[in-house]
Design a protein around this nucleic acid. Structure first.
Length: 284
DNA sequence: CCTAGAACCTGCGAGC
DNA sequence: TGCTCGCAGGTTCTAG
């Protein structure tokens, strides 16, 4: 569940169904799914056993579960295909089940990390004074964070010699934006994805941030974007924002503003979708 | 230091 | 039917 709205949907599920419980047992079924832990999966599992789970938190696409009785947190990143599912203990294992967490209560449910492509994973870290896992200190605040620094973001754009979509995907400049919401926000702002960031005026930056927030909030309100069953909440349910997309995945379909067919261009081993009329290529 | 591109994985659908 | 190719919501490492 890659981008901010989808990760926030998962965070809310964890807060409701996992926070407040105590870990009884952890099973690591794929070594790659435990990240940055030299001592390996069994040690990761042993270190979690018996600890209480605090309120789930999120920054950008990262989410974490603070431990209530130690200054550590379980950090999760879903990568391209990761899911955190709350399942009945007797439900059959998913094909790509990587990590199982059982709890010391009688609720009969367990937390499962399922990940087809294994780009995601869980890790265990110390936390900074404000409760942030130390390894994500370099991740910028996301645009839904009330403390997001608009001026720092604008100055970051002005300073960089890159193009706007690359900048939007740079998680140390602004976090939570991925390929879908970058294309959607740029369509709304009528900006071409290869516009140099150094050309941005402050009003243009502020307007773009507004579109990013609008599209993310709209997606969040309907459970995020799900093209297929890979992107679901902790109860396995899909979101509906795919119906409301204006650019992403709409190659050949008419722009909802001007009717011109939306184009897809190969870009950084993936795709960019844009309206060739509303979003003009910058000259130069 | 900065930026662009490849690598890391598995599975699916299109085309031959 | 079965093969190959391109493509998929992300991050990180390396080369220049």
């Amino acid at each position: 569940m890659p981008e901010l709205p989808e990760v926030e949907v998962v965070r809310r599920g964890l807060e409701r169904w996992v926070s407040g419980r105590v870990v009884a047992e952890v099973q690591v079924l794929h070594p790659r799914s435990v990240r940055r832990h030299l001592a390996g999966g069994p040690d990761f599992a042993a270190r979690l056993k018996g600890h209480g789970i605090g309120v789930a938190r999120r920054r950008g696409k990262y989410l974490w579960l603070p431990l209530t009785d130690s200054p550590e947190a379980v950090l999760a990143h879903l990568g391209m295909s990761g899911q955190l599912l709350l399942q009945p203990q007797d439900a059959p294992d998913e094909k790509h089940l990587r990590i199982r967490v059982r709890f010391a209560d009688e609720l009969g449910t367990e937390l499962r990390f399922v990940d087809q492509r294994t780009f995601g994973g869980l890790s265990l870290h110390g936390t900074t004074a404000d409760g942030l896992p130390d390894v994500i200190a370099h991740i910028a605040r996301d645009p839904l964070d009330p403390a997001f620094d608009e001026e720092a973001f604008h100055q970051g754009l002005r300073r960089s010699r890159t193009t706007i979509k690359r900048a939007l995907l740079n998680q140390s400049l602004i976090s939570g934006v991925g390929n879908i919401y970058a294309d959607e926000a740029l369509w709304r702002a009528k900006l071409h994805y290869e516009r140099p960031t150094a050309t941005f005026t402050r009003p243009r930056t502020i307007e773009l941030l507004g579109h990013i927030r609008d599209v993310m909030n709209a997606a969040l309100a309907v459970g995020g974007t799900s093209f297929d069953s890979l992107y679901v909440n902790v109860n396995g349910e899909s979101g509906y924002f795919d119906r409301s997309l204006d650019a992403y995945g709409r190659e050949g379909e008419p722009c909802r503003r001007c009717g011109t067919p939306i184009r897809r261009r190969p870009w950084m081993n993936r795709s960019s979708y844009f309206c060739p009329r509303c979003q003009r290529v910058p000259r130069g």
